[in-house]
């Protein structure tokens, strides 16, 4: 076990966990930040996507020992009032069906728009293809990202 002071959503959070623990489980089990989802545990589905210093990362294979002073943003910290353009666009297009993968989809989309404010459809497809949606909401995900890019 080891102690870490993690910067998460603008606050410092102290945890005492095994150094190999993926950030996903630190968030979910130790900090009750459960918006970040477990889907596969092997970085194949994207449900666990968070931002590390603004870059989209798969938290399920990211050990807590590797974080250091990097700033973590989770879906809970994407905006204070649920008014990030991607969140607003997601509501406008009523993207979700079951909704389980959507935290990861939104975090991936938000990082995409940060790096590429006016993505083409091809850019969106290329980036979002790492995130699986079992309900098949891909069309609305794309529409919502285009809408968000115009906000």
């Amino acid at each position: 076990m080891a102690k870490y002071n993690l910067k998460i959503n603008g606050k410092t959070r102290a945890v005492d966990v095994d150094p190999s623990t993926p950030i996903l489980w630190v968030l979910r089990d130790h900090l009750q930040l459960v918006g970040t989802k477990y889907g596969c545990g092997i970085a194949q589905c994207g449900s666990c996507t968070i931002h590390l210093n603004g870059t989209a990362m798969r938290s399920c294979m990211l050990p807590v020992s590797s974080i250091g002073k990097s700033e973590i943003t989770t879906i809970e910290g994407l905006s204070e009032k649920v008014d990030h353009p991607v969140q607003k666009a997601w509501i406008e297009h009523d993207v979700a069906q079951c909704g389980y993968c959507q935290s990861g989809q939104i975090m991936t989309a938000a990082a995409l728009l940060r790096d590429n404010p006016n993505p083409s459809e091809e850019d969106i497809e290329a980036t979002m293809s790492g995130n699986i949606c079992r309900c098949g909401t891909y069309l609305r995900i794309k529409e919502a990202i285009i809408t968000a890019s115009k906000m």
């Binding site: 459960v34 989802k37 905006s79 991607v86 509501i91 389980y100």
Partner: peptide, 17 residues
């Protein structure tokens, strides 16, 4: 609109997990 839309896009604890 989905009545849980806002909760879903902000990562609220809705699921069994």
């Amino acid at each position: 609109k989905n009545v849980e839309g806002k909760k879903l896009v902000s990562g609220q604890p809705l699921f069994g997990m």
